[in-house]
Nucleic acid binder design. Structure first.
Lengths: 230, 230
DNA sequence: GACGTTCAGTGAACGCCGTTCACTTTGTAC
DNA sequence: GTACAAAGTGAACGGCGTTCACTGAACGTC
């Protein structure tokens, strides 16, 4: 029985030379690289130990604490580095859209694709919420908050130009986002579920959300009160 | 800084007397009770250690291994005990419905409520998927599979009586379920998100899924091919 | 070129964890 | 009374995150 974390260092310590004076930050990047590689090899946060990361870099475990106060911060940094362009990627996807509703459709696809391409990071960032440290952050420092703000804006746009029913854009955005989040989460975690082809699932979720947004001649089935929020 | 797991045994060992011959199973239930209590106090699987469970029961840590081969099995048993009536609760919710579409609405609400009332267990069961052990289970042994099968049947019913657009019931059910799952997951994990009142969110998600299901005079915006699946 | 400082990093330890195993205690059947 | 099996113990193993006193090299200064 093999354990990926126990695999001897593929980049052994012999190769690493101590940083020169003033180059201490070099280690920080090396650590992030090693942690990221280890994470995607092992697939879960628990499988990535500080000792294993250190060994792969070719450094003692204590050295990691020169740059990260604890393991949580290290994993956090890894994930944030991976999600640096999350919001902009999603927003860019909307760029080539024909109309605001189409923009939302493209954003939805981009969100799901991004999540499925970075499963370990998505899991850690969005599912691991250590209530003590994460959940107590101010809302605007939460992981996908900038991406969410864009979604709210886009939903508002769609309503402004009459492409979507008038409703509370915040509430609608919560619905859209949780639906996207649900599909990413479920597909990541429950690998053995007999998922239909991913494109079909994306279509199903995104389209049904959009149908909900823009219901045509039938008119709204229910009136929602419009509210303003941050 | 206090650690709930380190709290001294509120049911100290003095009170427990060794089981009589043939009563070994007694310990099993006591362990499950203690683990469940600890889990809901601490809120995460990691916070529940075998030693802490044992201490609370008033027994050595090794004794737990007489009834559970490892920690995973213990947590699994705790969660399954909590979710024993998951499927039936959800199905019961549909019982009093006026029509098949209303039945789906009530099931959705029941699903979300059940999840929000058992957050730790929902997290472990649905989010912790240890790929090595869980994900490789045969599909019909996955946690909520019986509940999902009911959903597929109900969606099929709605289509049969003409209450919903004709489509692939399996695919539609995946969409409905992932949406419900998304909202439960997100609300459990991201506590500090400025959630709208839970009833509004439930309405938003469930209704938009149902609007997608039953689109009236406008007719289907897109045709889906109908497929059959186990 | 010796000196002190400071940066970059080490090695051993602490207390926790899941798990194992040789062992004891206890009740019962013969 | 004795043998046996069930019920449970205690100490240990290796791994974990983290801390802390310490070291060796590089640099500015005299």
């Amino acid at each position: 029985m093999q354990n990926a974390a126990a695999t001897p260092n593929p980049n052994p310590s012999a190769s690493r030379t101590r940083s020169r004076r003033g180059e201490g930050e070099r280690l920080r990047d090396e650590v992030l690289d090693a942690a990221e590689a280890l994470l995607s090899e092992v697939g879960s946060e628990d499988g990535v130990s500080m000792r294993a990361v250190a060994q792969r870099v070719g450094v003692s475990a204590a050295a990691l604490y020169l740059h990260f106060p604890d393991k949580f911060s290290l994993m956090d940094a890894v994930c944030h580095r991976g999600f640096e362009h999350f919001a902009s990627t999603i927003d860019a996807a909307a760029g080539s859209a024909a109309d605001p509703l189409d923009a939302l459709r493209r954003m939805g696809r981009a969100y799901i694709e991004f999540g499925l391409e970075n499963p370990e990071k998505y899991k850690i960032l969005m599912l691991q919420g250590d209530p003590e440290r994460y959940a107590s952050l101010p809302p605007d420092e939460m992981p996908g908050m900038d991406a969410f703000a864009m979604l709210v804006r886009r939903v508002g746009d769609a309503m402004d130009v009459g492409a979507a029913r008038v409703a509370d854009p915040f509430l609608v955005s919560v619905g859209v986002w949780t639906a996207l989040h649900g599909i990413v989460t479920a597909m990541i975690v429950m690998e053995s579920f007999p998922w239909p082809p991913v494109d079909q699932v994306i279509d199903q979720v995104v389209e049904s959300q959009l149908r909900g947004l823009a219901d045509g001649p039938g008119g709204p089935r229910r009136t929602k009160k419009v509210a303003n929020r941050g």
